[in-house]
């Protein structure tokens, strides 16, 4: 998948997670920009992402994420390694 495709799919997951079909994110978006994106919501998002993209993430990889762009890059790297 290209980064654009991953971002589109990730946006779908985020829209579902926040129950907001109008939600748009860019690579620069951070959790602070999205109301309700706390650590508990992040777990739901991670589980959905792992399910949807067929990957498994590690704690330290998640702790390093700073933005949606980092998230997309991580998903892409995981998919390529698989």
């Amino acid at each position: 998948m290209t980064e654009t495709e991953i971002l589109a799919e990730l946006t779908d997951v985020l829209r579902e997670a926040f129950g907001d079909d109008a939600l748009t994110v860019t690579p620069e978006t951070t959790a602070k920009d999205v109301p309700g994106w706390d650590s508990i919501r992040m777990v739901s998002i991670l589980i959905a992402v792992e399910d949807r993209f067929g990957i498994k993430t590690r704690s330290r990889e998640i702790d390093r994420l700073r933005s949606v762009g980092d998230f997309v890059a991580l998903i892409r790297a995981k998919q390529e390694a698989a």
């Binding site: 579902e16 997670a17 739901s44 959905a48």
Partner: peptide
């Protein structure tokens, strides 16, 4: 339902 669908329906 998966987790996100469950949470959405619950909301």
């Amino acid at each position: 339902l998966d987790l996100l669908q469950t949470e959405r329906l619950d909301r």
